[in-house]
Design a protein around this nucleic acid. Structure first.
Lengths: 248, 248
DNA sequence: TTTCAAAGTGTAATTTTTACACTAAGTTTG
DNA sequence: CAAACTTAGTGTAAAAATTACACTTTGAAA
């Protein structure tokens, strides 16, 4: 091993959030135009994930939560780290370089970002927009095109993590309202898992878990037989998870 | 939302590696004394994970690989990111503060570290020690006590990741030699999964996967019936993984 | 040649998964 | 107001996977 002088890096660190929502039939992801996200940047309509540089003395998780609260006004959103994305090449696209200048980082500054993913109920979000939330858009996950920075990479990391998680834990409920029909839950699982799940078997399996408690309420305003609504009972899951339950 | 001036952080970034090994009966993890790891630091025998600050213009994965190559002389080691650990409180212990001074970072410098986990075959490691490898020790995973920095947290992240991964992919083979007995594989799974797996069922399940190819070789030097040795056939796994195979 | 230690082998009961089609209920339309 | 439409809701049988469980084989060592 030869000892070579190499400068140690002293990078900036940001967080970027992949916020998933579900509108009843499609999986959505929250995107923002870069010039609306970073208000020093003008005339750059590239779509990016919501994010920001972290503050001094701020926990990484808190930085992600701050970004989300500023966006949606919601607090206590489900939020989990995906990992660090720190390639020195991640800001080499011309538009990204312009962004670097605009936010007044040194020309060759290195920015390492920590990716997070969040699950929110679109309806809750609609009720309480806040801050620069008006600039946000729910984009169909399936049709997301090229994003700024390396945000497509982060998005891929997020969907993988979401699928793995959904397989093990009932996080899907976080994307739905407090009460939901089994059909909504089924559609959600099918959409996220990219799957082809049998409707009857899904219903039986979910009900057997005991996580679902039926309410006395039914769908309203639908032009057909209304479905019974259920709620998620966390306590039951906490017991069952010891039993190593596996979802689809 | 009020706009408040808050200084953006400009932290240093390091990588730390949780290197797992398996000696045939116990899961091991590679640790090093801090004063031997960071050669500017004197008289600090706190145990830490091997790690280093990243270089300018170096990929995060490459930084982790560099640390491992310097340690073991091995290249192309299986290595996967665990995530970022960036609490502002992670260096507050007195010994950690002394470390900050010793490596000449500013007193309140913030260091964010990216955790990695690696799986190596202990025997390969023994064959080719290199660099400062002589300072390393294989510590029993089960009996690791308090480490420096937040390295216990990183270690917990690593074992969780390893278990999840082992459940889905045949990474266990990376901890064994090229040829291994079913008993070795069994012991490994039992140890990592903290499990209580039925020996006969394990054998049947593993053989049925088709990932294992029997060789004409047998254990040598054991005072009992020698076991047949097997190798791992990656091609078979790549097919089977489409079939959503699940390990223990 | 006996003893010891781990290798190697099979089966039956239970549980889980899968595939698959009709009836019920409420709304809309003619 | 009856027919048509749409989604809700239900059961069963076959196949596959999982679990629990005990004895024989083989080679080395005593």
């Amino acid at each position: 091993m030869s000892i070579v002088f190499q400068k140690k890096a002293n990078p900036n660190v940001s967080v970027d959030c992949v916020v998933f929502g579900f509108d009843g039939s499609d999986l959505k992801v929250l995107l923002v135009q870069r010039d609306l996200r970073d208000n020093l940047v003008e005339g750059d309509d590239t779509l990016v994930l919501p994010g920001d540089l972290i503050f001094d003395n701020e926990e990484l998780d808190d930085a992600a939560a701050r970004v989300l609260t500023n966006l949606t006004g919601l607090r206590n959103i489900f939020l989990e780290q995906i990992g660090a994305f720190g390639s020195p090449k991640r800001l080499l696209k011309e538009r990204d370089q312009n962004w670097l200048k605009a936010i007044r980082l040194e020309p060759n500054a290195r920015v390492i970002t920590i990716g997070y993913f969040a699950l929110v109920n679109i309806k809750n979000y609609k009720i309480k927009p806040a801050g620069f939330a008006k600039h946000l858009l729910w984009h169909d996950y399936d049709t997301v095109a090229e994003l700024g920075f390396d945000h497509n990479v982060i998005l891929n990391g997020a969907i993988t993590k979401l699928r793995n998680k959904l397989y093990r834990e009932p996080v899907g409920f976080k994307l739905l309202g407090k009460e939901f029909s089994l059909h909504q839950l089924y559609t959600l699982y099918n959409e996220i898992m990219g799957g082809d799940i049998d409707r009857r078997n899904f219903r039986r399996k979910m009900l057997k878990t005991g996580f679902l408690k039926e309410t006395e309420n039914y769908q309203e305003g639908v032009p057909h037989k209304p479905a019974r609504l259920y709620t998620f009972v966390k306590k039951e899951f906490d017991n069952a998870s010891k039993n190593n339950f596996k979802f689809y």
